[in-house]
């Protein structure tokens, strides 16, 4: 095939290599010629092909859907989670965002709660632990009433959706100078707490999720870096909501509120 309409640029890649969580890591430099039509990860694919051909182990990095929805991908690109383009996951970033002769530093997401597995892959399972603590509405299969029995005000439904758009990629934690997971946690708390269905467990959920979050992550100082890094542009407002709900959860007379 030929006749691609993208131009070819040459970039210098400084890629983090680390064989395991305990091994020391370091940067490796590679030159790569790449079409500006390629996606960022396709450039890494290409580099891996070349490494493999040269008998060197390919760089480990994670990605799956490459449509910006599964949340599997995510690296630091020149110090920014998911790279320079706003509201874009790493897999959706294309090389046309870069120029000829650019130096690109590629590092794993960093936080103590996200230990490096290998090279650019990190373990983000504490995010699952937070969901397990209460990120659900307790309704057994078959126990649901007709879906239209409870109208949900459109404004509330829309806002719940804004929060529910979170893809769980962990960029918020990576971008946060404190390695706090407030945006991730508050998105789930906001999603469920704004819907009528989520009210019964609102307070216990908030309490459990916040306290689990704090076992793994840092404390929010309201920098706002998380929202900037978020591929779904989830708002800081949800963090405020979580903070408010958490304090309410701690003082509320849940018996009289009819909620646990």
């Amino acid at each position: 095939m030929s006749g691609s309409h993208g131009e070819t640029i040459n970039v210098t890649l400084k890629v983090w290599r680390q064989t395991s969580a305990d091994a020391p890591g370091g940067f490796e430099t590679h030159q790569q010629a790449i079409s500006t039509d390629a996606s960022f990860l396709e450039m890494l694919d290409l580099l891996n092909e070349e490494l493999n051909a040269a008998g060197k182990e390919p760089i480990a990095f994670e990605s799956d859907c490459r449509e910006g929805i599964c949340g599997t991908c995510g690296v630091m690109i020149n110090g920014r989670a998911h790279g320079p383009q706003k509201a874009t996951a790493t897999c959706q970033l294309h090389m046309r965002e870069f120029a000829d002769d650019d130096e690109i530093v590629i590092e794993p997401f960093r936080a103590t709660g996200f230990p490096v597995i290998r090279d650019l892959a990190v373990d983000r399972s504490p995010l699952d632990a937070i969901i397990e603590a209460g990120g659900y509405i307790s309704v057994n299969t078959g126990a649901a009433s007709d879906a239209n029995l409870t109208p949900v005000p459109k404004a509330a439904a829309d806002q719940a959706f804004d929060a529910a758009a979170c893809i769980g990629c962990g960029a918020c934690v990576a971008a946060c100078p404190n390695s706090a997971a407030q945006l991730f946690t508050s998105a789930k708390i906001g999603h469920l707490g704004l819907l009528p269905q989520g009210q019964a467990e609102r307070w216990s959920r908030t309490e459990a999720m916040v306290e689990t979050m704090e076992e793994f992550f840092g404390s929010c100082t309201n920098h706002g870096e998380c929202t900037e890094a978020c591929p779904k542009e989830i708002s800081l407002d949800f963090i405020a909501l979580m903070n408010r709900d958490y304090m309410k959860a701690k003082v509320k007379n849940r018996g009289l509120a009819g909620q646990h």
Binding site: A143, N148, K154, A157, L195, G198
Partner: peptide
């Protein structure tokens, strides 16, 4: 039909009209 009920009860934010219905 049960799937929609179940998903809604779980908090799946399906699109709604201005009356708050699906």
């Amino acid at each position: 039909v049960n799937i929609i009920d179940q998903a809604t009860a779980q908090g799946v934010p399906f699109a709604r009209d201005y009356g708050g219905l699906l």
